[in-house]
Design a protein around this nucleic acid. Sequence first.
DNA 1: CAGTGGTCTAGACCACAGT
DNA 2: CTGTGGTCTAGACCACTGA
Lengths: 235, 235
Amino acid sequence: MNLPIYRYLFNQLKDKILRGELKPGDMLQSENELAQQYSTSRLTVRKSLSMLDNEGFITSFPGKGYYIIEPDHSKYTLLFNELNSGSKNTLYSKLLGVDATDPDATICQKLQISCDHKVVVILRLLYSNEGPIAYDIKYIPYDRGRPIVEKAIEYAALPDMVAKKSSPFAIKKELCIYIEKSNPEINKSLCLHESEPLLVVEQSLYDYENKPIGLGKTYYGGEHGKIRAYSNMRE
Amino acid sequence: MNLPIYRYLFNQLKDKILRGELKPGDMLQSENELAQQYSTSRLTVRKSLSMLDNEGFITSFPGKGYYIIEPDHSKYTLLFNELNSGSKNTLYSKLLGVDATDPDATICQKLQISCDHKVVVILRLLYSNEGPIAYDIKYIPYDRGRPIVEKAIEYAALPDMVAKKSSPFAIKKELCIYIEKSNPEINKSLCLHESEPLLVVEQSLYDYENKPIGLGKTYYGGEHGKIRAYSNMRE
DNA sequence: CAGTGGTCTAGACCACAGT
DNA sequence: CTGTGGTCTAGACCACTGA
């Protein structure tokens, strides 16, 4: 075993928590006790404990000690990329059109711009080998001097389109998932009956000052609209 | 300022990354350089860098150095709790019924049990001051000796119903969000037209051995079915 | 008061990259 | 070879909690 001591201690404690030997609310041994028990230094023990802290198992209170946390069961991780839907099938993207247009009121409001501000609209159809999967619309405020039509717009996800200025880390993102009851034009593009409801994933991007810099809507029809999320403290 | 050194250095570096002064792929100064530059010890510098690592800004390679990461724009955090939908309104829960029944084939498959295995079914209606919001069904395999009908089943979320054995940390959770085209019985409960499509959030729970221990379906109608997720590296 | 966690120092040895 | 990050020790002082 070349397992470092801090790693070993971390595993030991995590195991006790996952097996239920240590329950939410319980207090751990003190740093000094653990250091003695595992014949190591206090700093090594602290490393293990800080890892457990980072992974959401414990908290510490100065002067008191370390305590097992009550886990938050409402938190999930959601992976979304309009061009890479769940990876069940390779997705292809077909550019239907790019336009600089006057946006309607809804879009203006969501992008927090006035109605005479031009907006670049990008329409794409996403499909797999078996046929169309989704219909995708992007709205990006048009700013003079900042060319929007980047290289390979056909194959870029929204964050990569707008993350040019400043840092790609500074972007704030939001998703909203909801139903839109049939949209004749989109349903036709997706080869669906007109009455078919669509699952919409609406993606909003904000820059460092919380100014909207992009809005994307991806419409999934039929059996393709399955959004998945997961949560697992064991890995 | 009582800001600890490691905190100060962390802020400095994070700022440089968020402002775009340090871009993905760039290499940071070495630990020793930073320690000299900020007149501190190598360990203090390491603390700052490990925090940046934990938050997904940098990685390190032994013998090489620290590098700014290419951020993953597909990762979101989704908060879901059937009893606490977005917190726009206080939710109330009304128990419609609890039954131990023979499950149908779909449920058997999802719970990985044989069709003669009894399943506890819990039906609830979730509503706000303004009316019904969602229809909620839980399926929990019935095991002799493990009483399912816990205290306050009316007001418990699925993870809290099944997280009795072992540890609440050991549970693995999955969500699947999709459309179900009208379900007359449910639509009636929610005071909707029969043709109205429903947004379904299906929650699957697994125990330590990845055995299914609970299945929940929450049906949202009309404007209530808006699932939100977010991602923000700035906080 | 003694014990706890929070911060920090000044060393040490190792495996690893690149020259 | 030198410099890098990875691990670890043996101290230190502080602010905090509870008896």
